[in-house]
């Protein structure tokens, strides 16, 4: 399996931010997007995950291959950790949630209401959802926010396990995860230039 992105241009609220992005990712590879705040990393990830249509270009895989984790974890505070994960397991039609609980050291918390978790624990729960989806491509937006060093280690280990099983990971992060084998792509060179003035529907960007 291979994820090929060709000539991808993306827009944020109607304004082009990045254009002409090309990369490809083989099974077992990870790619880290780098770039200053506001350059459009989130927009690229959302486009690859199929949440918004690209302005131009193509994402080589269907969105059925993607599992997306954004800034918000989609955790329901009145459900327990187990119920939260089981819900996603049911939605994605995958079986047991125990490997996910184990990978992020959540087993001891599994019967606690998710509302009572700390920020880092919530984040771990959000990331555990990626394991539960059973999808080959993980699209992760700043996955390590509010994680402590131990938890970052757990996360890196989970990503490695996913890659070893033939998965792929695409993420935007500023922290060094110790994933030395991951490729890095700097977003800055792809910054969009203003389009020509006289296209047909033009002058509206």
């Amino acid at each position: 399996m291979e994820l090929t992105v060709t000539g991808l241009s993306v827009a944020r609220s109607g304004i082009p931010v990045l254009e002409g992005i090309d990369f490809s990712l083989q099974s077992g590879e990870a790619l880290i997007l780098r770039g200053p705040n506001g350059v459009g990393k989130t927009t690229v990830l959302r486009t690859v995950a199929g949440l918004q249509p690209p302005l131009a270009g193509k994402v080589g895989l269907e969105r059925e291959a993607m599992a997306y984790a954004g800034h918000a974890d989609g955790i329901k505070s009145t459900l327990t950790v187990r119920e939260n994960l089981e819900f996603w397991a049911d939605v994605f039609g995958t079986g047991s949630i125990d490997p996910a609980l184990g990978a992020f050291d959540l087993a001891a918390l599994s019967d606690r209401a998710a509302g009572g978790l700390s920020a880092g624990q919530k984040r771990r729960l959000g990331l555990a959802r990626m394991v539960v989806t059973g999808r080959p491509v993980w699209v992760l937006d700043e996955p390590t926010v509010s994680l402590d060093t131990t938890a970052v280690g757990l996360f890196a280990q989970a990503v490695r396990g996913h890659l070893a099983a033939g998965g792929m990971a695409l993420m935007a992060t500023h922290i060094d995860l110790g994933l030395t084998e991951a490729h890095v792509l700097d977003m800055a060179p792809f910054r969009a230039k203003a389009p020509a003035h006289d296209d047909f529907d033009g002058s509206f960007l």
Binding site: R46, A49, G50, L51, R63, E64, M66, A67, Y68, A69, G70, H71, A72, D73, G74, I75, K76, W88, V91, F92, G93, R129
Partner: peptide, 16 residues
Amino acid sequence: LDWEDGSLDLLATAPL
């Protein structure tokens, strides 16, 4: 509520 906590994005990527 699903929009605020991000679940809606995640549901949109779900096989549904």
